[in-house]
Amino acid sequence: MSEPVRPIEKIPDHYFRLHHSEKAYENEAIQTKSVNFYQDSWRRLKKNKGAVASFVVLLLILFISIVSVWITPHDPNAQEVRYSFLPPKIPGVSINGFNGYAKQGDRWVDVYQQKQVPSGSYYYLGTDKFGRDLLSRLLFGTRISLLIAFFAAFLDLTIGVAYGLTSGWIGGKVDTVMQRILEIISGVPTLVVVVLMLLVFPPGIVSIVMAMVLVGWITMARVVRGQTLQLKNQEFVLAAKVLGQSPLKIALGEIFPNLSSVIIIQTMFTIPTAIFFEAFLSFIGLGMRAPSASLGTLINDGYQTFRFYPHLMWYPALVISLIMISFNIFADGLRDAFDPKMKG
């Protein structure tokens, strides 16, 4: 049926001799470059444009909110009631709405002139009802919101991992009891717990964080326990057992490193949840107290005067949405990268 493609007569005769060596397999092993799990995940993550862009945005926001500790256009808490409700004014921009003009009735009016703001002073995003610079407050609020979120996520992680790892690794009766406790707590609506805690404890960052952590660690504990149960029966763990390593050492040395991907992913989902919850609490009036600002309180303040000065609400709303979107896209990207099964 098939005649050889090339004239086989041209192949030199000396090629026809046995040419096998046991070393061949070793060569083969070297040929295929091995890529470990994290490198592989990293490569997948880099291919996800949305995730990379989100990561950059997050880094930028983080950077700005740290730098703004030292550099802000104005003091975020300095009140100057004379200059309240100034519209945004950005140097060099002459578009109505960004040049110090605001619509009064049907006319655009230079509010800065009206309120006798000294020329040369700019409020890039305008001022609130106490004449505080919105941009400075926004930078300040973003920092507080992120701080609360990271703090809460860190505590969730610590408690959740410890609980989940203990429950899954020890197993048996301990696991059963710990699971029952978890089941009962998970029946409690987060809303109720957080509201009660905030009613009782003095308002502030610590109370908000504690209130959120009180129920927030449960998801992490569940995820970690599930993963631990899976890992527990794998060969490398059994091998460590056979070799006589102490259970604690195996849990920390063998299991824990293998949990890192689920922990990272879960944390990336916890942070935006915490940011949202803080904003929610501030919005219903249970969050940070004046003069402290968070994204939530800024939105709430803006909402009070929303009909007349919508920009006071939109800017903080925009920032919080941007942070949340970036975190969610980045977390999704991380999950897809760590769990390639999800991306067919």
Binding site: I11, H19, E28
Partner: peptide, 19 residues
């Protein structure tokens, strides 16, 4: 199959065998 073939010839390394 060259690498796994105990009866590999040198030609296997360079050319694909025809049917």
């Amino acid at each position: 199959f060259y690498l796994r073939n105990p009866y590999a010839l040198e030609v296997d390394l360079h050319f694909e065998p025809p049917l």
